[in-house]
Amino acid sequence: MKDQRLITLSHWLSVASLVALIALCISWELWLAPMKEGGSWLALKGVLLLPMLMGVLKGRRYTYQWGSMYILLWFVEGVMRAWGDHGLSQILAGAEVALASLCFASFVAFAWYTRPSLGKPVQA
């Protein structure tokens, strides 16, 4: 029973952090602190997360597995922009690093608690 609560917690933490990361990436590059006046094409980096969101919402273990590696691209981008940008953009980059880290941790936790070697049915 304890594992089921951890599975549910990691699933919803994954969903919440991924949705927050998508919203941050899109709003950052369109309104908050875009690279160019009026918005930039970097907002598409948030759209690239949408296919992963579909699998995460459905609780597909395979999506959590490849997503844990894919999300590291946003972590790296956030680290580089936190290092090189200034002002609001630097703060938003720090938020991106935090959200990507939370996504990674919750993805790995979900994949760990739903591993087939446990021999239990998987439900999100």
Rank of each mutant, 00 (worst) to 15 (best):
V47R: 05
S40H: 02
H86D: 04
S27V: 07
L6K: 04
I26C: 06
R5L: 15
W12A: 09
R5E: 13
T114N: 10
E77P: 02
S17G: 13
G46D: 02
S10H: 03
R81F: 04
R60H: 05
W112I: 10
S40I: 00
V97Q: 08
V76G: 03
V19E: 13
G94C: 12
L88F: 07
W83F: 08
V79M: 05
I22F: 00
G46T: 08
H11Y: 04
S117V: 15
I91N: 00
S14P: 05
K58F: 10
G55A: 14
L24A: 06
S17H: 04
S27L: 08
E96P: 10
G38C: 12
D85E: 12
A23P: 09
S17E: 06
K45S: 15
L48S: 10
A82N: 05
I7N: 00
A111R: 12
W66N: 13
L99G: 01
T114H: 03
A109P: 10
G55E: 02
Y62T: 07
R61T: 08
K120Q: 13
M52R: 01
G38D: 06
S89D: 06
S68N: 14
K2R: 08
A93H: 01
Y70F: 15
S27K: 07
W31K: 09
Q90T: 01
E29M: 10
H11V: 05
M1W: 07
A16W: 04
E37P: 01
P121N: 08
E96D: 11
S68P: 09
W74I: 02
V15C: 11
S89E: 05
G67P: 11
L30C: 08
W83T: 10
M80G: 03
L42S: 07
W12H: 13
L102S: 10
A105Y: 13
L50S: 07
Y70C: 06
S17M: 05
I7S: 01
P116N: 00
Y64M: 01
